[in-house]
Simulated scan of single mutants.
Amino acid sequence: MVEMVLSSIIGVTLKSSEIIYWSYSQKENSIWSELNKAREEFGEEIQRSSEPDIIIKTDTTLFFIEAKLTAGNETISRNTSNSKKYETGGDNWFSKVFKSHYKTVAIDEKKYELLRFWLLGTWMAKQQGLNFYLVNLVLSEREKNIGTIFKRHLNENQRMKFIRITWEDIYRQILNSNLSGVDKDKIIKYFKNKTIGYDGNGKLQRAFSI
């Protein structure tokens, strides 16, 4: 199902995927070793390091998926002591994949988390000969300009891209797919019934605009 949804959204046929949730590889029965290599290369402590919500590795492409529901993409560094390693690690990889200075992206624009995922993800993909997508998964009514805002700092090309997709996009892909059975029914039910707390008038808010 994951391959089907991603293939439909990006327009590329994918297969042979491995899905890694919160850095844990079921194949390795541990934190994914490839991610740890990248963390060390850019000076991160393993216990306090970049952790994409979902990593998907296919035969051709590496995906980092950062999913936002109630939270947003504005994040700042609480520890600037390792910023130099982000800028110099990987044989100065930062200068190859960013147009802007570290401070501009991480501090001024408050895109520290996305910066780290783009930096580590593109480097990992390069080491493995894979394409790379950093996928920002958000609600359809939120952060509509995140692509424009973040992309202006990136050196994108055909092999590495940042994309914004919405939870509602995924819902429609699954709803209109040829899939059937209990799993599809459960997912559709989840989307229709998911809530995100109460509004100012005490009314329960539905999570998704469907």
Rank of each mutant, 00 (worst) to 15 (best):
K126W: 06
M4Q: 13
I188Y: 02
F208Q: 03
K110V: 05
K96D: 13
I55N: 01
E28Q: 15
K151R: 12
D185N: 14
T60I: 10
W167M: 05
S177G: 08
K85E: 12
N176G: 11
Y198P: 05
I55G: 00
Y21A: 08
M4F: 13
E113G: 03
E3H: 04
M160I: 04
S25C: 06
I170M: 13
K126F: 11
L204W: 00
E34T: 12
K57D: 02
N136W: 07
K85N: 11
F98A: 02
E109Q: 15
K192G: 15
K37E: 15
R48C: 08
K111D: 00
G43W: 04
A38I: 14
I174M: 09
K57V: 13
T60D: 15
E156Q: 11
K68V: 07
I210Y: 14
G200C: 10
S33T: 04
T166V: 06
S50D: 00
E113F: 00
K57I: 09
I10Q: 11
S23A: 12
K192I: 03
P52L: 04
W93K: 02
F132T: 05
Y86E: 10
T70L: 13
K144A: 09
Y171R: 11
E113I: 00
M1Q: 05
S83P: 01
Y24N: 09
M124S: 13
L204S: 02
N201Q: 10
G129C: 03
S209I: 03
S209R: 11
K194F: 15
S7M: 02
G129Q: 00
L154W: 01
D108T: 15
F98T: 03
I9D: 07
Q26V: 10
S209V: 06
E51P: 05
E28N: 13
G181S: 01
E143P: 05
T148F: 10
Q128G: 10
E87S: 07
K85W: 04
E66K: 04
I55V: 08
E18H: 08
D183H: 08
K15F: 08
L137W: 02
N29D: 14
L130V: 02
L204V: 02
S16C: 12
R164C: 12
N193Y: 10
Y171F: 15
K99S: 08
F150H: 00
E113M: 08
E168S: 05
E74A: 06
M124A: 12
S209T: 07
T58G: 04
L69G: 03
S95R: 06
D185H: 08
V105W: 04
K68W: 10
R172S: 09
T61Q: 01
K103Y: 15
E40W: 11
V105N: 00
T88M: 10
K84I: 14
R39E: 11
V138C: 04
Q205E: 12
R48M: 03
L134Y: 09
I65C: 09
S23C: 07
V5K: 05
V97D: 00
A38Y: 00
Q26L: 11
I54F: 14
E3S: 12
L115G: 01
T88I: 07
I210M: 14
K186Y: 11
T70H: 10
E156R: 05
S140G: 06
R172M: 09
L139H: 08
M160Q: 15
I170F: 09
